[in-house]
């Protein structure tokens, strides 16, 4: 998933109110994620079913009560059992970072899990069975019945796309919702990353600034010293920092964080574009240092304006 906000994300974002009365932003699961999860679970069920039946026939107990019950439990309660045991997740949902939760932010109850999965019978299993053998529902069924079953499957399959909260029929009745909750790792703060002093004319200035900051702060951290050094090495003006907005800042964050083979080339390109856009006169000898400094200064500026209640989303074109 891209860490950048895009329009689809905004439409799927919901603010939940937890029982403590605090707001928790959650992203609804998109259609593709849910399809992936469902197909994965379907494959697991099919594979287990096949293994079970093969094993049953190999041992000569194909029609044994245990086999019949196992098949029944597998086909009807696979989702229920996993969602109960794994806090609203199945193997497929786990792989796709999805999770079932209560729509109103409460505890996910057993009844809710049961109800949302009982309806799968009508939503998926029945139309597939009818499609494959229309005769099993109605004797001497005309071929039209298969087509009707297919339409049914399509309509119910696409049902989540036609409501705001991406609810399946089962979700609708059970009061549940499926959210996308990926794990996310906390990376170092870019604004305090120590930088190497840029080569060339400004090197002595940076060294001086570091010393000055160290002396003035007394007990100041190394990081603070580095930040001060960076600010001194790249003195951006307020006008230069007012060119870009939050969106560009976070794109820059992404560029700086991503470790890719052509990183040096990308940084050089971005640095030259930024320098041109903000009319930076000092030259860009070390693109990484320049961009880090610009990121820190830009973030400081935008965060300060945020505190004043001014949220600048994008660059003024």
């Amino acid at each position: 998933m891209s860490p950048l906000s895009n329009p689809a994300d905004a439409r799927l974002r919901r603010e939940f109110v937890t029982p403590e009365g605090l707001s928790l932003p959650l992203d609804l699961a998109g259609a593709s994620d849910r399809l992936v999860a469902f197909v994965l679970d379907g494959l697991i069920i099919a594979a287990t079913l096949l293994a079970l039946l093969l094993l049953g026939s190999m041992l000569g107990v194909g029609g044994a009560p245990l086999v019949i019950l196992a098949v029944f439990v597998l086909t009807h309660f696979y989702f229920t059992i996993f969602e109960l045991r794994w806090q609203g997740r199945t193997p497929g949902k786990r792989a796709a970072d999805l999770r079932v939760i209560d729509r109103h932010g409460g505890r996910l109850t057993v009844a809710a899990i049961f109800v949302r999965n009982v309806t799968r019978e009508v939503e998926v299993v029945l139309p597939i069975v009818v499609m494959l053998s229309p005769g099993s529902l109605i004797q001497d069924a005309p071929p039209l019945v298969g087509l009707a079953a297919f339409t049914w499957l399509l309509v119910l399959g696409f049902f989540p796309l036609f409501n705001r909260d991406r609810l399946r029929i089962g979700d609708l009745i059970a009061g549940t919702i499926v959210v996308h909750a990926p794990r996310s790792v906390l990376l170092p703060d870019l604004s305090e990353r120590p930088i190497l002093a840029p080569r060339g004319a400004s090197a002595p200035a940076a060294a001086n600034a570091t010393n000055a900051a160290g002396a003035a702060g007394g007990g100041a951290s190394v990081a603070a010293g580095a930040a001060a050094a960076r600010a001194a090495a790249y003195p951006f003006t307020a006008e230069q920092l007012d060119v870009y907005g939050i969106y560009e800042l976070q794109v820059l964050e992404e560029v700086l964080r991503r470790d890719r083979p052509d990183r040096a080339a990308v940084l050089t390109l971005v640095a030259s574009k930024v320098a041109k856009k903000i009319r930076w006169e000092g030259g860009v000898a070390d693109p990484a240092a320049f961009l880090s400094a610009f990121y820190a200064a830009q973030r400081a500026r935008l965060e300060q304006r945020l505190l004043m209640g001014q949220r600048k989303e994008r660059k003024s074109s």
Partner: peptide, 18 residues
Amino acid sequence: LDRNLLDFLGSLAARGFF
């Protein structure tokens, strides 16, 4: 405005909630 921090906290709060 640290995107990574916001993403991390959002994801952690959600997982904590679960």
